[in-house]
Write a protein that binds this DNA or RNA. Structure first.
Lengths: 240, 240
DNA sequence: CGTGGAGTTGACAAAGATCAATACTAGTGG
DNA sequence: CCACTAGTATTGATCTTTGTCAACTCCACG
């Protein structure tokens, strides 16, 4: 998001304190010793434009920190279209979410320009995190999870129409149920619309569409899903 | 997100360990002593449906944890329409973002049903966070910031059309500049579309529209904004 | 000069928004 | 127990925005 990429072509290794000095790095508040420690344990990679840094599904082996250039983080939706979730510029972290939260990357990272990226391996970070109070670890995990969910909704919003979004939402409500399910909508129609980002009428028509295709039945505030497997399948097929 | 609200009408104070036992609370991994400590320092509030727990702009005085019922977190867009960002059910935290990150709530919280909500005041939490390694604090702050940004994009996506979203994006690129600005789009048109969640043609037409209204000028990859104030004003006015 | 890829424009189709009318439903007061 | 009313849900008609597909332009590069 910053003005522009200046490749420091003098030093071999960018020093963390330079990133921190720029003011936007994640390590701003750290002591000089801590920064020097980071410098010792990190490695630096240079990647050409177009290079993939990691892909969804891969385990996080550590955390990246962009030194120069821009990296795009994106998810690929059903139709193969990308949703760019975030741009990471100098001082921004990559892969921290997977590392802190859930083990596995849920998006891809690709260099949009030639980039220089520092890498802090798990060996360095794990003890740091392990030593923290459990409450904080829990908070980190929680925030990572919220972020993942929100990114999912952003993807959904741009790449699915109402039917698909509704179906996905109902499946989330149904949770891990098998076979059939009966879920209570915690919402008025207006609120459902506010959640899904649409007009109430559109939501109602979406529901009506699912009913017509016999994927759900409406019983007031309750929704019956006679066949979860079929609903899931229909959603995967096309944007439904 | 869970099945339904059961108000435990026996005990006066819900115990944290009960939340944790349910498996989804944020305090699952904590030791029994730690949980008991939380119980001692927390207070419990009961609110009727429709009650506002906090509003955007208010300082976070601590962190809430839902014990029973459902709370909706939402932002209100320009036209007064709500975008629901998250539903918080039993075991979910509220207001942690503002507390950990930025001081001030950036969304409202309202009880969707009668709710029971525990409150952990800042006095209890601050020392806990203050004692943590700075790196973790930084990570927490970073994640909180990412969430805020993403929520902003979700709101934008549902409540603004292409012109507005483009304008907002350009203003973000321009950053704190005054008067006029000239920003470089770090994207191809296709990538810009992937970022904004639209077809490339729609993006181009959106840009063309802004050009026609003389709010921007296109110079290849660069965009000139002759009058930032005017652009901002137009965006605020209507969904533009 | 071609040639290929990105960018742009136009014509048309589809999804969604908006506005107005109608149907439900739950609560209220006879 | 029956209207009556207010609020919510639903439906229909119509308009706007966006997506899709195809043509065409504009460079950059060989």
């Amino acid at each position: 998001m910053e003005k522009r990429i200046r490749i420091p072509r003098l030093g071999f290794q960018p020093a963390c304190k330079d990133c921190a000095a720029a003011g936007h790095g994640p390590f701003c508040g750290l002591s000089p010793e801590a920064l020097a420690g980071l410098d010792r344990s990190k490695s630096v990679g240079r990647y050409p434009r177009g290079q993939i840094l990691f892909q969804a599904g891969a385990r996080a082996l550590g955390v990246h920190c962009v030194s120069s250039g821009l990296v795009k983080l994106y998810r690929v939706g059903a139709g193969g279209r990308e949703q760019i979730l975030r741009l990471a510029g100098p001082g921004d972290l990559l892969g921290h979410r997977a590392f802190l939260g859930e083990r596995v990357h849920d998006h891809d990272a690709e260099a949009m320009s030639d980039v220089e990226v520092c890498f802090l391996p798990a060996e360095v970070l794990t003890p740091l995190v392990a030593g923290a109070p459990p409450l904080l670890r829990t908070l980190l995990r929680g925030l990572a999870g919220e972020l993942a969910e929100l990114e999912g909704r952003l993807l959904e919003r741009s790449q699915q129409r109402m039917g698909g979004r509704l179906g996905a939402f109902l499946l989330r409500l149904a949770g891990a149920a098998e076979g059939a399910a009966r879920v209570e909508l915690p919402f008025s129609r207006q609120e459902l619309a506010d959640y899904l980002g649409a007009a109430p009428e559109t939501v109602i028509r979406g529901l009506a569409g699912l009913v017509k295709r016999k994927l759900i039945r409406l019983r007031g505030r309750f929704v019956e899903i006679p066949d979860l497997v079929r609903l899931r399948a229909e959603l995967d097929d096309r944007a439904a």
